[in-house]
Simulated assay, not measured.
Amino acid sequence: MTASQAPGAREGRTIALPAIALGAGLGGFFDGILLHQLLQWTSTMWDGIFHAVTWLAVLLALGLLHARVTAGRAGLLGRRALWGWVLVGWGLFNLVEGLVDHQILGIHHVRDGPARLWWDLGYLAPVALLVAAGWLLRRGARR
């Protein structure tokens, strides 16, 4: 039996998209609420668009997860594969946001000033670890 045919392998694929979307939305909420609103590190028109996109990601994820759970997979929310993919999505969202918004487009930075590159890199390092942790958690899920 190959790894793709192992029991549980199909389940991991069926929850990957909704779990990544959920992780991206939750990661965006965390970033937007903590950094943008509470710490007020940025304040631009793009914040509203940013929050709308993260909300839509969570809405999409919940719809997809509902479809998966009601298709006979009760108990799915407690599984390591789901939460591993959620961490992957959370980290991927913040990696893409950090690279595109901070570095490529320069819309904003984590903190302005002479050390802004170091702030930006300090932001990217832990979110890269989120992706790795999620990937490892997902891989360790029961097959």
Rank of each mutant, 00 (worst) to 15 (best):
G63D: 09
A141Y: 11
Y123Q: 04
R10F: 09
A3N: 10
A128T: 05
V96R: 03
I33G: 06
L39D: 15
A125L: 13
L137N: 06
P18S: 07
G75F: 07
V127R: 02
G122Y: 09
L65P: 00
D120I: 05
I49H: 10
V131K: 01
L137G: 01
H108Q: 09
F29D: 03
F50W: 05
L136Q: 15
L99G: 15
T70G: 03
L121W: 13
A9P: 06
R13Y: 10
W118N: 09
G48H: 07
L82S: 06
G89Q: 01
A141Q: 11
I15A: 04
R68N: 14
V53G: 02
V69G: 04
G122V: 07
T2D: 15
R116G: 03
A9G: 06
V100L: 08
I20A: 03
R13M: 10
W46P: 00
V127I: 12
I15N: 02
L35N: 09
R139L: 02
R68I: 07
I15Q: 03
V110M: 10
G75T: 08
F30E: 06
A74F: 09
F29N: 04
G113Y: 11
A52M: 05
T70F: 04
H51Y: 12
L105D: 13
L129F: 13
H108R: 12
H66L: 14
F29M: 03
L60S: 08
A52C: 07
G28K: 01
F93Q: 00
W55K: 02
G72I: 07
M1F: 09
L38Q: 08
Q5S: 12
L64N: 11
G113K: 04
A6N: 12
L105H: 11
L26Q: 05
A24S: 06
V100N: 02
G89I: 01
G91D: 04
G106I: 05
L137K: 05
G75R: 03
A132L: 15
I107H: 06
M1K: 10
L34F: 15
P126L: 03
H66R: 14
A16H: 07
S4C: 08
L124H: 11
G98L: 00
A67H: 12
Q5D: 08
G84K: 02
L34A: 15
T54Y: 02
I33Y: 13
E97I: 07
T42G: 04
S43P: 08
L121R: 03
R10M: 08
L77K: 10
Q37D: 14
D112S: 14
L129R: 10
R142D: 13
W119E: 06
L64W: 15
H36C: 02
H109E: 10
L34R: 11
L130E: 07
G134C: 05
I20W: 04
L35W: 14
R10E: 14
A133Q: 04
L87C: 05
G84Q: 05
R80D: 12
D120N: 15
Q103D: 10
L60G: 02
